[in-house]
Design a protein around this nucleic acid. Sequence first.
DNA 1: AATCGGTTAGTCGGATCCGACTATACGGAT
DNA 2: ATCCGTATAGTCGGATCCGACTAACCGATT
Lengths: 197, 197
Amino acid sequence: MVRRKVANTLALAVLGLLQEKSMHPYEMASTLRERGKDSSFKITTGSLYDTVAALVRHEWITPVETVKDGRRPERTVYTTTETGQQEFVSWVDELIRTPVVEYPKFLAAVSYLGALGPERAADALGERAGQLELQITEARQMMADTVGSGLLPRLFMIEGEYGLHVLAAELEWTVRTRDEIRDGTLTWPAADGTWSA
Amino acid sequence: MVRRKVANTLALAVLGLLQEKSMHPYEMASTLRERGKDSSFKITTGSLYDTVAALVRHEWITPVETVKDGRRPERTVYTTTETGQQEFVSWVDELIRTPVVEYPKFLAAVSYLGALGPERAADALGERAGQLELQITEARQMMADTVGSGLLPRLFMIEGEYGLHVLAAELEWTVRTRDEIRDGTLTWPAADGTWSA
DNA sequence: AATCGGTTAGTCGGATCCGACTATACGGAT
DNA sequence: ATCCGTATAGTCGGATCCGACTAACCGATT
């Protein structure tokens, strides 16, 4: 299992789009945003053009034509290659099959929760809980709007279901931990030395 | 809420350590690894030295002495500044309080789960489930070893509890989704056109 | 006494990432 | 007619990230 030559997931999104039809980068970005995929992929124009260039270098995609429309900047349209198609599927397969360690900011912060002291920690967790609740209702709403109307088969919003499930778990933990601080189940060590991590 | 000048969480780890005592970078890395914090922070020597340099630039830490020991490379020892101390606490506070959107690889992959077709998708999810189970038992074991022995107060392993909770939720979703594919609750659209994402 | 592997300590160049910017077109309000 | 905001399409320089490397020391083994 050799390290993949283009590793960032924006490349996966690009490959995914090009399975459907040829596109120029700007269209990729707007399409992804339209479909709400911008919560699964971090889409920034800068990165997008770099990523496309990288995919070309490794011949997973190739330019098919560059359209010159009036005096506007040229659009270069790309398609996927055969390698690109295979790579796409096997990449998805691998990402699903094999969990990789990641380093979310919150995990880092929780490592130093002690630094806040019990009151402030409980307060901060409480606020987070509120925010998470908001995010959850919003997400649920969006799913309902899209799937409920029968516009899209459920499979095409499955990442939303995953996201919601994880969000719910995070909320659970956050609330529980706040409560444990409040009711004295989770205690701070006596503040003799510095609170050494 | 101005964008933080040093944004990567390795800097948070560095600040955290320097709250305790002065250190040189190499010692920071080993200390973090000893404490198992290398699952909360991505520690690579290259990044570490860059991060320390950035912290110095912004005066959150400063060098206190450089020890020249025989013909070995010099060690430069750093301490936190007053700004560094404040920044540390307020940064932790903010990270706890405010959820930020992140883009885990798995989320990206799930967005294109369709590309695998039902059998392969179910299979891949099944394998992931197995791996997650392994990770969970391992993590649980490590927590038991460390906390159970009363070596460390619970607060100092709280990030482990968080990690486990989220892992469990991921496992749940993974298994459930695999089962829904297997029993036909989650179906693939007829493969007429390309399976358009 | 020469060699090997592991630990200590850090450097460096290339890859990646991304925010800020450029420049044209276009429909509607002033 | 002109101005303004928005959409279209992409470039570019600087910041960050990190794997691979250097280099000395130490203890055990051959």
